[in-house]
Design a protein around this nucleic acid. Structure first.
Length: 596
RNA sequence: GGCGCCGUAGCUCAAUUGGUUAGAGUACUGGACUGUCGAUCCAGUGGUUGCGGGUUCGAGCCCCGUCGGCGUCGCCA
């Protein structure tokens, strides 16, 4: 060992002893006669002092050449700092190391990204990604990586205690046309054939249930070749699990326990269990989204029945066409949003595909007023105001459109306004379940005209319907609700899972509904169907988005900050410059020609 | 693929309506200083304003294209 202690370790109780530290020069203060260095490693910062008489003059001279991020090894005496000189910012701030020996282990070029917390400006993200080795040296990033480690370990321990078995599943798999776009890997041995990287270990874990491993867990890397977002990377990590001889309630109960444990250990929050559960239908009705942020209200109010009583043509025609008129009432919104502010909101909703934004301000008498007020009778406005719970100073914002379009719009407005008006404490954590998702959704518009009007699976084709939904499979698939559940944290989908169908008759009905004939089913999922025919236990599971967990537990607003080596929005790695070109020879081996 | 924001010194940013030699802080270099901790003080180096084109007497600023980063819609569970 090159060191006796870390830079976060020494205390006043160590005073009088000798110590050797290794680390990076976080900063240095040259006083002519002597010099101070803040020495940093992942454990903390310790002040090391090059001062006479403790430090020999030759070493003081040598210390003058030290610069930021030089790697040094210093030996010296641990001493309490002079009275009044303690630095409470650091855990080691009561002491300092009076250096007697200095070894320069390595120099550093002037860093384009400073790892020092004394530099308050965060560099631009492209620089951070390009010089990730420096960015990861920043204490903030090291804290994120440490939090990630503790969450992962907490999850592993929790499931190990419950007799879960960690089983690894293949990275090289087979492409399945459903779901997200696959990352493909060409086969050298079989020209023209491709492996696909897993979008999730879904099918394998079902096979494991059939194989009798009734509690499976894995920290699984998943790949989806889709466009990125602040909370989405092309490769990401799931805490994936599956259980046999259970029902939906059992999965949620297990995860409740995990969330409670993690919240307690890492955030010091005591969560009462069970976590609240809300159906998908209720979530859409009240919040317009299947992952509502429950840290604030601003719930949607339906005015579809009242709207046609107005003379407002837009509302009337939309309701006549089967559409909906819904609104949110923003407390104090009229004061917060000036004319200009409402223009900005209008631009915002136009960006989401709306034609405009109808609104009312609530005046000091509680009367709804705006440029469209003339189309609404006094009585009607009073009635609407009553239903909206409108108070003087409020702002009422409408969406009139098809059901899902009103959901999308009002959800986005709610989210934006919640943020802009600071309707919640960003540090607050809210955990809940959204359950009973629809089994199917109807494809409305698609590039492929044949797909329009067809049913597709909302999760995947093996999702089990609720027991009382089985009957709807024949008569009204839209009414079918699934044994599906999403874990929601602060408006983010932090995990989701389903109970799987294990009744062949139900499975076959679902395939028929989805337009998957026997041949297609056999071709795509033959091995799973075959396995299901050999004594499949009832089973189901869930996958938690590990990266999102870390992001939310750490209070980050961006998933890249909790991934050591993330990709940019264009799915490149600025440090390694992946993806890169390959040799012609490699392409030839794979029988691949580039057509571009 | 669409929409929006951003790109100026190593880094973080500024630059009035399009107007003189593009500034500041920090870093870096040299000097001063015996207790600092975002050390301080003095001096200095540092610029193809992402790239290409256009408008103009004149462009960091306006227009078109392009590259890159971010956000978002589509996409994705």
């Amino acid at each position: 060992m090159l060191r006796t202690h870390t830079c976060g370790e020494l205390r006043s109780t160590d005073a009088g002893s000798q110590a050797t530290l290794c680390g990076w020069v976080d900063s240095y203060r040259d006083h002519g006669g002597g010099l101070f260095v803040d020495l940093r490693d992942r454990y903390g910062i310790t002040q090391v002092v090059f001062n006479p008489p403790d430090t020999p003059q030759a070493i003081i001279d040598a210390s003058k050449d030290l610069r930021a991020e030089y790697v040094i090894r210093v030996t010296g005496n641990v001493q309490p700092r002079p009275t009044g000189m303690a630095n409470l910012k650091h855990k080691t701030g009561e002491i300092e190391l009076r250096v007697t020996q200095l070894e320069l282990l390595n120099k550093s070029k002037v860093p384009p990204v400073s790892p020092s917390e004394s530099v308050t400006e965060t560099p631009n993200e492209d620089l951070r990604l390009k010089h990730r080795f420096l960015d990861l040296r920043r204490p903030a990033m090291q804290r994120a990586m440490l939090l990630r480690d503790r969450i992962t370990k907490g999850m592993r321990d929790y499931f190990a205690d419950l007799d879960f078995i960690d089983v690894e599943t293949p990275i090289l798999g087979r492409s399945t046309p459903e779901g997200a776009r696959d990352y493909l890997v060409p086969s050298r041995v079989h020209h023209g054939k491709f492996y696909a990287l897993p979008q999730s270990p879904q099918l394998y874990k079902q096979i494991l249930m059939i194989a009798g491993y009734d509690r499976y867990v894995q920290v699984a890397r998943c790949f989806r070749d889709e466009d990125l977002r602040a909370d989405r990377q092309p490769e990401f990590t799931q805490l994936d699990l599956e259980m046999a001889f259970i029902d939906d309630d059992d999965i949620m109960t297990v995860i409740d326990g995990l969330v409670q444990k993690l919240a307690q250990e890492l955030l010091g929050i005591d969560l009462p269990l069970p976590l609240p559960r809300m159906t998908y239908d209720e979530a859409m009705r009240r919040f317009g989204h299947d992952a509502p942020d429950l840290r604030f209200g601003l719930e949607i109010v339906d005015l579809t029945d009242l709207a046609p009583q107005s003379e407002f043509g837009v509302f009337k025609s939309i309701v006549e066409a089967g559409g909906h008129v819904r609104a949110i009432c923003v407390p104090g919104g009229s004061e917060h949003y000036s004319r200009r502010g409402i223009d900005a909101l209008t631009d915002f909703v136009k960006g989401l595909g709306a034609k405009g934004l109808a609104y009312f301000r609530v005046d000091e008498k509680g009367v709804l007023d705006s440029n469209i007020a003339k189309y609404f009778s006094d009585e009607l406005r009073a009635e609407m105001g009553k239903r909206l719970g409108a108070k003087p100073g409020d702002l009422v914002l409408f969406s009139a459109d098809k059901w899902l379009a009103t959901c999308k719009l009002l959800h986005n407005l709610r989210k934006k306004i919640g943020e802009e008006m600071k309707l919640y404490d960003p540090k607050e954590m809210n955990f809940s379940w959204v359950v009973q998702f629809p089994m199917f959704e109807r494809t409305e518009d698609s590039d492929n005209p044949q797909a329009v009007g067809k049913w597709s699976a909302m999760h995947h084709p093996f999702t089990a319907p609720l027991d009382d939904s089985v009957a709807h499979l024949d008569e009204d698939p839209a009414k079918c609700r699934a044994k599906a559940y999403d874990l929601i944290i602060n408006g983010y989908e932090a995990g989701g899972g389903t109970i799987r169908i294990h009744d062949p008759a139900v499975q076959s009905k679902v395939f028929t509904l989805l337009g998957i004939d026997e041949e297609t089913a056999a071709d795509r999922f033959g091995f799973l169907l075959e396995a299901l025919a050999y004594g499949a236990p009832p089973h189901g599971g869930i996958a938690l988005g590990l990266d999102r967990f870390v992001m939310l537990f750490g209070g980050f607003d961006n998933i890249r900050d909790v991934i050591a080596f993330p990709k940019t929005q264009k799915a490149t790695d600025l440090m390694t410059e992946a993806p890169g070109t390959v040799d012609t020879k490699q392409l030839k081996e794979l029988a691949i020609k580039i057509d571009a």
